[in-house]
Design a protein around this nucleic acid. Structure first.
Lengths: 129, 129
DNA sequence: TAACTGTACTAATAGTTATAGTACATTACA
DNA sequence: TGTAATGTACTATAACTATTAGTACAGTTA
């Protein structure tokens, strides 16, 4: 399903969480899609099942998947209400990253073009709904 | 000089690093400004000097400060060349954060306005050079 | 010399991460 | 019914990280 970088410094379960979030946000995984079982994915990635379980628990806590005993784990439906606390955290992160880029000397026009290209490339799986 | 959140989950030395980076990037601290000694800042924040030392070592490694034995630690002059590896890492982080905001349901126009306001507010201490 | 500075260690403690193993409840299906 | 697969919840252990504590040394200033 995807690759891991075990020498990344970043905890394995966080890498799993991030990968799934990326696939969900980019529309590769769609609502009610089934994801591999804890034991299967652990075997595929040759890591311990507990590590996957921790990742799935975190993904469920963050609202990206839901799990049903005996059935498996599945992609959640997007929320209809915005979590403003989380949104503001993301905004602050974006803000400080942009400031750091500007401090490093990136051109204002280059930065604008980069941000425009992100907005343009946003499809997010909405087109197939 | 600033406040710490000891119950943040984030390591203390990383919080110190981030705070200094913020002050430097926003132009509050200017090149060759002296920052508190390892022992002084540790006393101010009531934490261990080794934690501050680790933060300063990291800041020096990242190029934000320079230290001179017997003299103290000071704000570095901005680099004249862009670190493209670091710039690309920042771009990827910005990109995924923006996608996450869009996935959460933030309006495209609201996002554009937010990004514009960041660019507008960029002064970064260049005006007093 | 005395006081301050950064730097480099060792050691101990607490917390986190990952692995290993076990057990139990729920679901689907033959 | 029974079996296999699933999620879930534990305990235990080892390795690593973060933090504190203490000591020591070298360079700078007055």
């Amino acid at each position: 399903m995807f690759q891991l970088d075990l020498k990344n410094g970043k905890p394995i379960y966080e890498q799993v969480v991030d990968k799934f979030k990326e696939l969900i946000i980019n529309g590769v995984l769609k609502p009610d899609d089934k994801i591999p079982s804890v034991r299967d994915l652990a075997q595929q990635l040759t890591i311990n099942p507990n590590t996957i379980q921790k990742a799935y628990r975190e993904l469920e806590y963050q609202g990206y998947i839901y799990s049903v005993q005996g059935l498996g784990s599945f992609i959640s439906h997007p929320k209809t209400t915005i979590d403003h606390v989380k949104a503001n955290q993301l905004k602050e992160q974006i803000s400080s990253d942009i400031f750091e880029l500007l401090y490093m000397g990136i051109g204002t026009q280059e930065l604008k073009d980069f941000l425009s290209s992100i907005l343009t490339s946003w499809k997010g799986g909405k087109e197939n709904d």
